[in-house]
């Protein structure tokens, strides 16, 4: 099947994403879905209730990417990465930020990921959980979301450039 025409797709972006968000917000509120919470509960209490959700997300994403890539192949470039990815198995799929090298991307992943894990664990949840808790009336989580938005602006305005410069300087 052919994908949507470009101008139709552009018009649909805000509508489709707000509906998607509504569904995910509803599900998140009902189930307490939380990625970092799932890993935390497993380590702390050997509970797998939330972890199953996160593992389910990874598996379901793979299965449905596979199914939809068969229906609308042109909307899923570089899927079947083992065969199609021109940069080799370790090359990032298109869309990784900053146009960094593979080594630099892995360093960013490791440094960023560790702190994401620590902060998420200490403050009681991943960003989706914080959004949902905000909606449930938790004021502290509301400030977390405000902090996130400010962080995004500062990252795009300053830090992204610094990171790219830094890796260029040390030649990775």
């Amino acid at each position: 099947m052919d994908p949507l025409a470009k101008d139709v797709a552009i018009m649909l972006v805000p509508i489709v994403t707000i509906i998607l968000g509504f569904i995910i917000g509803w599900l998140g509120q009902r189930s307490g879905f939380c990625s970092i919470g799932g890993i935390r509960d497993f380590f702390l209490f050997r509970q797998t209730r939330l972890l199953k959700g996160y593992v389910g997300l990874i598996l379901s994403a793979f299965v449905f990417y596979l199914i939809f890539s068969l229906i609308v192949p042109s909307a899923f470039p570089n899927f079947f990465w083992l065969i199609e990815n021109p940069g080799g198995i370790l090359a990032a799929i298109p869309g990784a930020p900053g146009g960094l090298s593979v080594a630099a991307t892995i360093i960013c992943m490791l440094v960023g990921g560790i702190f994401v894990g620590i902060i998420g664990t200490l403050l009681g949840g991943c960003p989706l959980r914080q959004l949902v808790m905000t909606s449930e009336g938790n004021i502290k989580s509301g400030f977390f979301v405000i902090g996130m938005l400010v962080g995004a602006l500062v990252f795009s305005g300053f830090i992204l450039g610094w990171v790219v410069d830094l890796f260029a300087l040390i030649g990775i």
Binding site: F115, V145, M148, G151
Partner: peptide, 10 residues
């Protein structure tokens, strides 16, 4: 939230 976002975007 600020540092979480910076690290996540990294």
């Amino acid at each position: 939230g600020f540092f979480f976002m910076v690290c996540a975007l990294l």
